[in-house]
């Protein structure tokens, strides 16, 4: 795949004004370059506030007390470093029979990696199909975007989907807290098991965002009549006579599956979004991350 297809300079330039944010305050041991609303122990002065009995008295600004005869303490900027985990589905169902899913998946991954690297966060890129594989060791600094781009462009899809096995092996260490993005179609032999598998995300010390990539033809197949369907991953075949009524039932069944998945993620505070490949990429990207509170400006 050409790098140009994954790398849109204009779009990425607009990402420079954005940065990641966490939905809730977390204790981060790593200090990075991204300023947050929180106060920290850096040397960068941020503001004053009245002293309270629970504050460290060593933080009192005695000079200001001398001038105003009131106790104020000085607060400083806290600069945090996130660890952004990008988990890419490289099963065959991402490339066939709808290759647009793979392109969209990789473009999202590149954009996320770029955003993270630009904000001096550590970025880990992992892929999964029947097992989890580390594609890139944690990177930091915007200079690594090129290597990310090259690596993702060379990523080949293949193998069966085993989401359960793959996510079981994903164990971010406590010093790699941050945000995890799961880019997948969540389809496999048993799609209904995906909701249960995603429960594992509640045990991770990261905020999890699931981007469910689908092709519009997966929501409603554009076939009818006597067909022989075969699963691109397992090779299993089924002969069916599809009519409009059958397709309506399929669509209803698929929508119920998506609703169940979204409800399951919502109850576990996992951000979930369905992304169909026919939508505008830029609008979808910004909207999805903003809606999930993973992005701030």
């Amino acid at each position: 795949m050409a790098d140009e297809e994954l790398f849109d300079p204009d779009f990425l330039a607009r990402l420079r004004t954005l940065f990641f944010k966490l939905r809730r305050r977390r204790l981060l041991t790593k200090k990075g370059s991204q300023q947050t609303r929180a106060v920290g122990a850096t040397r960068e002065f941020k503001d004053y506030r009245h002293y309270t009995s629970r504050d460290d008295f060593r933080a009192i600004d005695w000079r200001l007390f001398a001038r105003l005869e009131k106790l104020f303490i000085r607060i400083f900027e806290e600069i945090q470093e996130y660890h952004v985990h990008i988990l890419i589905d490289r099963s065959l169902s991402m490339a066939e029979p709808h290759p647009r899913k793979r392109v969209t998946e990789l473009r999202i991954a590149v954009a996320l990696a770029y955003l993270a690297l630009m904000n001096q966060h550590r970025v880990s890129v992992l892929s999964f199909a029947d097992e989890l594989r580390t594609e890139l060791q944690p990177l930091r600094g915007q200079g690594h975007i090129h290597s990310v781009l090259q690596h993702l462009a060379a990523l080949e899809c293949g193998g069966d989907s085993d989401l359960e096995r793959s996510l079981r092996r994903f164990r971010p260490s406590r010093d790699r807290r941050g945000i995890a993005f799961i880019l997948s179609d969540l389809l496999g032999p048993n799609p209904d098991d995906a909701a249960e598998t995603l429960r594992r995300a509640t045990t991770w010390p990261v905020e999890t965002h699931v981007i469910h990539l689908l092709d519009p033809r997966e929501l409603r197949p554009d076939v009818d009549g006597e067909v022989q369907l075969y699963d691109v991953e397992s090779g299993e075949t089924r002969r069916l006579s599809l009519t409009k009524r059958e397709l309506d039932r399929y669509e209803t069944r698929f929508q119920r599956y998506l609703e169940d998945l979204a409800q399951s993620c919502l109850t576990r505070q996992v951000d979930y979004v369905t992304w169909t490949t026919d939508l505008a990429f830029e609008t979808m990207f910004l909207g999805v991350l903003s809606r999930g509170s993973a992005l701030a400006q």
Partner: peptide, 16 residues
């Protein structure tokens, strides 16, 4: 012979 159509999963078709 019926048309051969690749799909990402047969799970939803099986349940029809």
């Amino acid at each position: 012979r019926p048309r051969r159509v690749p799909v990402t999963t047969l799970a939803f078709f099986k349940s029809l």
